[in-house]
């Protein structure tokens, strides 16, 4: 028992205590700008403020939009790449390694890299577009494009994750059913659809699930690229929380918003595992 103590102490100090403190804060009025004003108990009013705020609902909606866009493209492209790199073709080993690089870069650096690419006037991307005779695109300066710009950076970074997991699953599939299908004359698409995909499904579900949790918490790339702008067109939940806490200095409201997102994510996870279990028993 005594040996567990240090670990439990660390866990308490780094995880449990901040959470309890955030819970405590979420029921208080706490303005960082007025540090000497007592933090009075305000009941559910912080939560009420969060849930009725158009900004919060907007952030929630943008978070989900971004999630749907990035996850669906990452899934399709990731599986496609996995199918490609697991072919026994020359150069596939190297391709596989190179494709993993984006995943290993810190999201802040990814944000900076894409900032260089997107930068108005000076960005490389528009420079290349001008070569092929296209007009420059206001990547991060137009509310119509900013979310897509972020999505592209996120897809670039995390598609390799889906690819890696899928490729590992693909190489573990036994080859004989594929030979049987080849002799029988099933088309490549039929084989993919009816032999490969069903066997990959459990792995794909887990990969998408892990990505979904991450996508829900997305922060760094957006902070570097747009800081939630232009306007609030890319303000996702974590940026909203950050803004409440450290721009408006409403620590209580920020804490309440964190808890609301925590509950949403827990509910999503629970529903997900429920549906997974239903699938398996069916």
């Amino acid at each position: 028992m005594i040996f567990l103590l240090p670990a439990m102490l660390v866990l308490f100090l780094t995880t449990i205590y901040p959470m309890l403190y955030a819970g405590y804060l979420s029921f208080r009025s706490y303005d960082l700008a007025k540090p000497f004003v007592p933090r009075v108990f305000v009941g559910w009013s912080n939560y009420q403020q969060v849930l009725t705020s158009g900004d919060f609902l907007n952030a929630l909606s943008i978070t989900f939009q971004l999630m749907v866009i990035t996850l669906s493209i990452q899934l399709v492209v990731g599986v496609g790449l996995a199918l490609l790199v697991t072919q026994r073709l020359p150069g596939m080993g190297i391709a596989r390694t190179l494709l993993l690089i984006p995943m290993m870069i810190s999201p802040v650096i990814v944000g900076l890299v894409w900032l260089f690419l997107y930068f108005p006037e000076l960005g490389y991307l528009n420079y290349f577009l001008s070569f092929v005779g296209l007009d420059p695109i206001p990547w991060i300066t137009s509310p119509n494009w900013a979310l897509w710009a972020i999505a592209i950076a996120d897809i670039w970074q995390w598609t390799p994750f889906i690819m890696m997991g899928t490729a590992a699953a693909l190489t573990s599939l036994s080859p004989e059913p594929y030979e049987a299908a080849r002799i029988d004359g099933n088309t490549r698409w039929q084989v993919f659809r009816h032999v490969t995909l069903p066997q990959l499904k459990p792995v794909l579900v887990s990969l998408v699930f892990l990505r979904a949790i991450d996508a829900f918490k997305i922060y760094d790339i957006i902070f570097v690229l747009t800081k939630g702008g232009p306007g609030d067109s890319t303000e996702v939940l974590s940026l909203y929380i950050y803004r409440q806490s450290f721009t408006f200095w409403q620590m209580g409201v920020g804490a309440a918003a964190s808890f609301v997102s925590l509950i949403i994510i827990v509910v999503l996870i629970t529903l997900f595992f429920k549906s997974l279990n239903r699938d398996q028993t069916a």
Binding site: S174, E176, P177, E179, A180, R182, I183, D184, G185, H194, V195, P198, Q199
Partner: peptide, 18 residues
């Protein structure tokens, strides 16, 4: 293979597991 009019039975059965 599909146009040879053959069918094969494999040592480890090669059934589609799902």
């Amino acid at each position: 293979p599909k146009d040879r009019g053959v069918a094969m039975v494999f040592q480890n059965y090669a059934l589609y597991p799902h």
